[in-house]
Design a protein around this nucleic acid. Structure first.
Length: 365
DNA sequence: GTATGCTTTCGGC
DNA sequence: TTACGGCCGAAAGCATAC
């Protein structure tokens, strides 16, 4: 037994499925979970949609008005997001999953990895039965379907859970890894984004197979840092990232849409202050210090701009967030002197668990 | 030049 | 015909140090 057995679970069309679960009369309808901006009755974007809505072409991120148009002759429900509801379902499912792996890693609100190597004694057929059992238990206890992928490492587990959904179960044994990966376009490989895919295309690399057979030394020259080695290993199905509990989130941010597009500070700064306060509350709840503060601005043409200031040392202080955010925002406005602002955001990052005694507030002020 | 880490933008849900 | 959120982590871009 030399192979790990890793499982990746992904809850299907998560937000919309939670809504169906809360309100069974939605079953059979196109369900669209909406993030309304509050600007006008229909302004906002689609958070996610169930498979009936997707069948008509509705996708996450599209304008709500467009989804309404597409579904105008369809029995459809447009529901505002209810994050609290989804967090509750997520907590329940994650608590249930934790019991099954010797190690567990929650990757997002609706995804998790389990290392079940010992539990199934390295046997992939036993792992299939276990995955089937887990799906059943989530279905019975929470009324939700999910897709599970099983593979010899996290990379393959993740890609196989994606292979069949919704309600899928895909098991890729070590000797099947290459047959599974090789036909896929190289852009499907985790870590290969649009730019990298384009660069690889110019090198004649179209599929994961092409990448796997590409000279590794040449690959290391072409992609800076550890990337070349990573691409070589990943395309050959190799990955040794451990399944481990994640620490706190790496960043915390809050965003909002302004009532109207503007460059007027009296309209913008009070909102910025509110966002800074909300971020502070979240940071304090989790007892975190942060080492950088950023602001994000989305202009009337939907272009995104951001500015970050790294701090001298990790701090938990409230005043720092707004003070820095305001400075950054004014600087950004100066740089982008042509356009009005539509949305703004505040972010802190470089989060670490607060340690030691309470900090001396205002010591330097 | 290459490796690394920080900043900015992208993209999924 | 257009239409457009909030949050996160990943990818890409940039600066710095040798």
């Amino acid at each position: 037994m030399d192979s790990h057995v890793i499982m990746h679970m992904d809850l299907d069309y998560f937000y919309a499925q939670c809504e169906e679960r809360e309100n069974p009369s939605l079953k059979g309808k196109a369900v669209v979970v909406c993030v309304y901006s509050g600007r006008s009755a229909h302004s906002g974007a689609v958070g996610t949609a169930n498979y009936i809505a997707r069948g008509y072409g509705v996708k996450a991120g599209m304008p709500i008005s467009l989804a309404e148009n597409i579904l105008q002759n369809v029995d459809a429900a447009f529901i505002p997001v209810n994050y609290k509801l989804y967090e509750q379902f997520s907590e329940n499912v994650m608590a249930l999953l934790r019991n099954y792996g010797e190690s567990f890693e929650q990757a997002s609100i609706d995804e998790a990895y389990l290392d079940v190597t010992g539990k199934v004694n390295g046997n992939f057929e036993v792992a299939r039965k276990l995955a089937s059992h887990i799906k059943e238990e989530i279905k019975i206890k929470e009324g939700l379907t999910c897709s599970i992928g099983v593979g010899p490492n996290k990379l393959i587990a993740k890609m196989s859970s994606d292979f069949k959904k919704p309600d899928g179960l895909t098991v890729i044994e070590p000797n099947e890894v290459r047959n599974f990966l090789f036909p896929l376009p190289v852009g499907k490989l985790y870590g290969v984004g649009k730019k990298t895919e384009e660069k690889m295309a110019t090198l004649g690399i179209k599929t994961i197979k092409d990448l796997a057979h590409f000279n590794p030394d040449r690959l290391a020259e072409l992609f800076r840092g550890k990337l070349g080695l990573y691409f070589h290993r990943a395309s050959n199905g190799l990955d040794d990232e451990p399944v481990q509990e994640r620490g706190e989130a790496e960043q915390i941010s809050r965003m909002t849409t302004l009532k109207e597009n503007t460059r007027e500070l009296p309209q913008i700064l009070p909102e910025l202050k509110r966002l800074a306060h909300d971020v502070y509350i979240k940071v304090t709840e989790q007892e975190l210090d942060f080492t950088s503060v950023s602001i994000i601005a989305i202009m009337e043409d939907m272009s995104t701009h951001s500015k970050t200031k790294s701090l001298e040392a990790a701090t938990p202080e409230k005043g720092v967030i707004y003070t820095v955010a305001e400075k950054l925002f004014q600087a950004l406005l100066k740089e982008r002197s042509e356009l009005n602002v539509r949305r703004i955001g505040v972010r802190v990052a470089g989060l670490t668990k607060r340690k030691g005694q309470k900090p001396l507030h205002n010591f330097l002020s």
